[in-house]
């Protein structure tokens, strides 16, 4: 989208034979970048800028929807957010924040040098911005792969142990018992850990489970609601990165995020104090940071195009609109991350 916008704004000379028919041939002859339907470069520049700001407004509302989802879910499950936040690496998030801020500075500097027709300096700044974007994505890649390895993912996979033949852990069996007993005779199925979808279980159970399966999307397992009474008796204040204790790590670092990250896959499933619906935190986390990451990638493409055009010598103090507009885009990407960082990584 922004690509198109940048192209729009580029105002490359439009090959209209009648471009001089309007009695403004003088302006158009003086400024080869001036599109035929604009009268002056200032009008063209202002239009492009307003167009870009409107586009940024749509970006803000686009992310706004996700921020609302975040707010609603956090309002509903505060314990989930304060618990799950500790699985994120503040160090990596903090480094990424700084990387983006610095790349914003280099982008603003690129505009600064473009405005002064300093081509080489502008190109250096653009390359630096590109490097910042790449660094951000590399760090993000490591964060994502690590979490996926740990099964810290969205949806039902969050609860699926990596080893499907794993026996039911004694403690959780006990916890599960009351609910299973309430089922009346269904407790024998409680150990059927390998069964993934209700539809694949035995016939009788399949029938019993039909309404539940209907609730779940596409036959996937469903996870509902609040913790057991035993679990909810644990006060939120005492909830924390319990993986520290359970996974055997003795590192009592003040912030447990890194230590948890060292745990073996699905360590979180052994945490008896994990509140229900933690997968929702990761759903929102992946949705928001993923969409943001896509915007970073788009930004890299657009900056690449700027570098290409800059090397071709398209930009000077008379015409630098595309650099300015891509700069605006890049800053909004930074700006959104400025909100994502505390909302996900810095929940006390």
């Amino acid at each position: 989208m922004s690509t198109v916008d940048a192209n729009q704004a580029s105002g490359a000379p439009v090959p209209h034979s009648h471009a001089v028919d309007h009695g403004h041939g003088g302006e158009h002859a003086k400024h080869p970048f001036l599109a035929h339907h604009f009268e002056t470069p200032a009008q063209q520049f202002d239009s492009s800028k307003l167009g870009m700001w409107l586009f940024l407004a749509t970006e803000v509302l686009f992310f706004g929807g996700l921020f609302v989802a975040y707010a609603v879910l956090r309002n509903r499950f505060p314990e989930v957010f304060s618990y799950a936040s500790h699985y994120l690496s503040t160090t990596m998030g903090g480094i990424n924040t700084c990387v983006l801020i610095v790349s914003s500075l280099t982008m603003a500097s690129a505009v600064y040098f473009a405005q002064r027709s300093r081509k080489r300096a502008m190109l250096v700044c653009l390359w630096l911005t590109m490097a910042g974007a790449a660094a951000f994505m590399v760090i993000k890649y490591f964060e994502y792969t690590h979490k996926i390895h740990e099964h810290l993912v969205w949806g039902s996979t969050f609860y699926v142990p990596p080893d499907h033949e794993i026996a039911v852990i004694e403690g959780s069996h006990e916890i599960a018992a009351p609910a299973a007993v309430a089922q009346g005779g269904a407790s024998s199925h409680a150990t059927a850990a390998t069964s993934h979808a209700a539809s694949t279980s035995t016939d009788s159970v399949g029938e019993v489970l039909a309404p539940a399966a209907m609730l779940a999307a596409g036959g996937s397992p469903s996870f509902v609601g609040a913790p057991l009474t035993e679990l909810s008796a644990v006060k939120p204040a005492s909830r924390g990165p319990l993986g520290v204790a359970l996974s055997g790590s003795t590192d009592a670092a003040p912030h447990g995020s890194e230590t948890i990250a060292e745990g073996h896959p699905s360590a979180h499933l052994e945490d008896a104090t994990m509140p229900a619906n933690v997968h929702l935190f990761f759903a929102v986390y992946y949705a928001m940071t993923g969409l943001h990451g896509v915007h970073v990638l788009v930004g890299m493409v657009v900056i690449g195009m700027l570098i290409y055009r800059g090397m071709r010598g398209d930009f000077n103090s008379n015409f630098y609109t595309p650099v300015d507009l891509v700069g605006l885009y890049w800053h909004i990407v930074d700006l959104i991350w400025i909100f994502l960082f505390p909302l996900f990584y810095l929940i006390h």
């Binding site: 039902s156 609860y159 699926v160 142990p161 039911v168 852990i169 959780s172 069996h173 599960a176 609910a179 299973a180 089922q183 269904a186 199925h189 409680a190 150990t191 059927a192 850990a193 069964s195 993934h196 979808a197 209700a198 279980s201 159970v205 019993v208 489970l209 539940a212 399966a213 779940a216 397992p221 469903s222 996870f223 509902v224 699905s266 499933l269 052994e270």
Partner: peptide, 9 residues
């Protein structure tokens, strides 16, 4: 019950 079936933990 579905939960217990699919993800005992």
């Amino acid at each position: 019950e579905t939960l217990l079936q699919n993800a005992p933990n």
